[in-house]
Structure formats: C-alpha cells, structure tokens
Amino acid sequence: MVEFFPGFTEHHADIGGGRFFRLRRAGSGPALLMLHGMPQTHAMWHRLAPAFAENFTVICPDITGYGFSYKPPATQDHAPYAKRAMARDMADLMDHLGIDRFALVGHDRGARVSHRLALDHPERVERLALLDIIPTIEHFERTDMRFAMGYYHWFFLAQPAPFPEELINLDAGRWLLAQSARHNTENTIFAEAAFADYLAAVADPATVTAMCEDYRAAAGIDLDHDRVSRAQGRKIACPALVLWGDRGLVGTLYDPLAIWRFYCTNTLDGQPISSGHYLAEEAPEATLAALRPFLSGR
C-alpha cells in the first residue's frame, strides 16, 4: 500500500475561541493552503500534497465544520457557516501558524471558502486556484432543471433543521456512498484510506449538521454577502486559475472562464481536466500538471 501523506505531520491546532483544526503539514518554501470539498476532508489532497511539499510549505486542514475540526453551534442565520466566517477561520489559522501570505487552492466547498478569503483578505492571498466551481451566486441565479437535478443536494441540505440531518443520520455511510456516486458511480475514485476518513467524519452527527449549515448559509447569508461584494465591485485581486472536470456538471453546464472573468481584476487562466468532479483524486497527474506552473509563477 502506498504511504498516505508521506512526510506529513498530522495534528490539531487550537487557535483560540474554542476553534481547533485538524491539519497535515510538510515541506518548506512559500506557503500553500489547500482547502477540501464536501463530503470530504483534507485527505482528498493525499495524491497532490506530497508533490507540492517538494517546493512549498503545504498546509491541508479540515475546514470549519468538516472532518475533525471544530464545529460551531448552528444559529438561526447560519452565520458561523457563512463563507465569510469560514474564510476568517482559515486566515486566523494561518496567523496561528505564523504565515502571513500564501498561495491558495480550493476544491468544491473549499473553493467557495477560498473565493471569499481572497475577497475579504486580499493582502493574504498571493495566488488563487479554484477547482470545479463557479461563484455561488451565479449557480443560484442560473438555476434551471439541469442544475436542480444535478445539484439536488444544494436544496436538500439547505432544508430547515433537523429534517435532512435526521434522514442522513439513519445511515450516514449509505448517504455518503450515494452522494459521491453522483460523480463516482462505482466508487473507484477514492483511495481506501481517504474514503475511510470521509466515513469516519460523517459518522459524527455534528459533522452532518455542519454540512447542512454550510448549505443553508449558501442559500441565505452567503448570497447576501455576494450581492454586496458584487455591487461594490469587489473582485479577486491576485492571479487566478480555474480548473474544471470536462465530464462534470460545471464544465457541461457553463463556460467557467467566461463567468470568472467578471470576478477577477488580475490575470485569469483556466482549462478543463479530463475528469469528473473530483479532479484531485480522479485525475491527480493532470491536475498537478495544471497547478504546478501556476503556483510557481510560471
């Protein structure tokens, strides 16, 4: 069996205020923060992070609410799971680690946190790579039958508590298989160790609540924040790269580069990867080949 995250240390960082984050770290050189998607944990980066650690100080945390990081209590307005709050958590984590500026790679929900982090903390982010998303507000404003059917979980998880939580918790493992099978029909994409980590995380009802709160925030307070940012003309100021799977819904429903151009003021590049939604696990070599020159400034 190939070693999982070779050379990385795993620990929990307590950043104060009851906030702690599980993370893996390795390497030296410029800092690179990598944020995972749903229903995953930082384990999704196990095929890319060791390669980046040859040239970067790589930090892979479980984002707020996910995996084995802290899970703030749910509130009526879902503000603790707004991407603004989750991005601030990541900025505070990097402060705790003594890192001022960093490159940032995010996939799926982690990419939405990354987008907000680049807007709210532009002085922190040197380069930004976003994997298989368009802005949240664009998804909702462009919703049609194809999006609603393909991304039905956006609307299911955002239903009022505790309805979706109760259904998922009846058999969280079965739900995880069904959720990932939307893109991963035979469950052949995920490495055994990574999928075991995802299963262990969703076995905790608090993780399930946190995921639902993430989507409730996306359908409410996140849209409020996005509308204000758009009206103010706040855009990504650093060089940006967008990647998407050519067999995924983002690549088949939209022209990601055309959409993201409106949200960037600096250089923007992008390309499809021969993959479905899970680029880093499904097509690690192609994803690495696209990310490496961008993150190195070439």
Rank of each mutant, 00 (worst) to 15 (best):
residue 138 E to Q: 11
residue 158 A to H: 01
residue 171 D to E: 11
residue 146 R to W: 14
residue 201 A to D: 09
residue 198 Y to H: 06
residue 145 M to H: 15
residue 138 E to R: 11
residue 171 D to W: 11
residue 163 F to P: 02
residue 153 H to L: 06
residue 148 A to M: 13
residue 142 R to K: 08
residue 193 A to Y: 00
residue 177 L to A: 12
residue 176 L to P: 02
residue 198 Y to T: 02
residue 144 D to F: 02
residue 160 P to W: 00
residue 161 A to P: 04
residue 164 P to K: 04
residue 155 F to D: 05
residue 193 A to T: 07
residue 176 L to Y: 01
residue 164 P to H: 04
residue 152 Y to Q: 06
residue 155 F to I: 08
residue 171 D to I: 12
residue 160 P to H: 01
residue 138 E to L: 03
residue 183 H to Y: 15
residue 163 F to Q: 12
residue 151 Y to V: 03
residue 160 P to L: 01
residue 181 A to R: 06
residue 140 F to G: 06
residue 184 N to Q: 02
residue 197 D to T: 03
residue 160 P to E: 01
residue 193 A to V: 12
residue 191 A to H: 09
residue 159 Q to V: 05
residue 139 H to V: 14
residue 171 D to L: 13
residue 144 D to T: 07
residue 151 Y to C: 10
residue 189 I to S: 05
residue 175 W to M: 12
residue 192 E to H: 12
residue 207 T to K: 05
residue 150 G to E: 05
residue 143 T to C: 12
residue 145 M to K: 15
residue 184 N to A: 08
residue 156 F to A: 14
residue 186 E to G: 07
residue 184 N to G: 03
residue 146 R to I: 15
residue 146 R to A: 15
residue 167 L to A: 14
residue 174 R to D: 03
residue 167 L to R: 13
residue 148 A to W: 09
residue 146 R to P: 00
residue 179 Q to C: 14
residue 180 S to L: 10
residue 192 E to F: 09
residue 167 L to P: 11
residue 169 N to A: 13
residue 186 E to M: 11
residue 139 H to N: 10
residue 201 A to P: 09
residue 164 P to V: 05
residue 155 F to M: 05
residue 140 F to M: 05
residue 192 E to K: 13
residue 187 N to T: 00
residue 140 F to H: 08
residue 139 H to I: 15
residue 161 A to R: 09
residue 143 T to G: 09
residue 191 A to Q: 03
residue 138 E to M: 08
residue 158 A to C: 06
residue 142 R to M: 06
residue 179 Q to T: 14
residue 204 D to W: 01
residue 142 R to G: 08
residue 168 I to R: 03
residue 166 E to C: 14
residue 153 H to I: 05
residue 169 N to S: 11
residue 189 I to M: 07
residue 154 W to L: 10
residue 190 F to A: 13
residue 198 Y to N: 05
residue 150 G to Q: 07
residue 182 R to W: 12
residue 197 D to V: 00
residue 195 F to K: 07
residue 188 T to H: 07
residue 184 N to D: 15
residue 148 A to I: 12
residue 175 W to N: 10
residue 171 D to A: 14
residue 196 A to M: 02
residue 171 D to K: 14
residue 181 A to I: 01
residue 157 L to Q: 10
residue 142 R to V: 10
residue 147 F to N: 01
residue 178 A to G: 09
residue 184 N to F: 02
residue 173 G to W: 04
residue 200 A to S: 05
residue 182 R to Q: 15
residue 150 G to N: 08
residue 144 D to R: 03
residue 178 A to T: 02
residue 168 I to V: 09
residue 200 A to M: 02
residue 188 T to N: 08
residue 158 A to K: 02
residue 159 Q to A: 15
residue 187 N to A: 10
residue 186 E to D: 12
residue 152 Y to F: 11
residue 153 H to G: 07
residue 147 F to H: 03
residue 206 A to I: 00
residue 202 V to Q: 04
residue 153 H to T: 04
residue 176 L to R: 01
residue 204 D to N: 15
residue 200 A to C: 03
residue 143 T to A: 15
residue 144 D to E: 02
residue 152 Y to C: 05
residue 169 N to K: 04
residue 159 Q to Y: 01
residue 160 P to M: 01
residue 158 A to I: 04
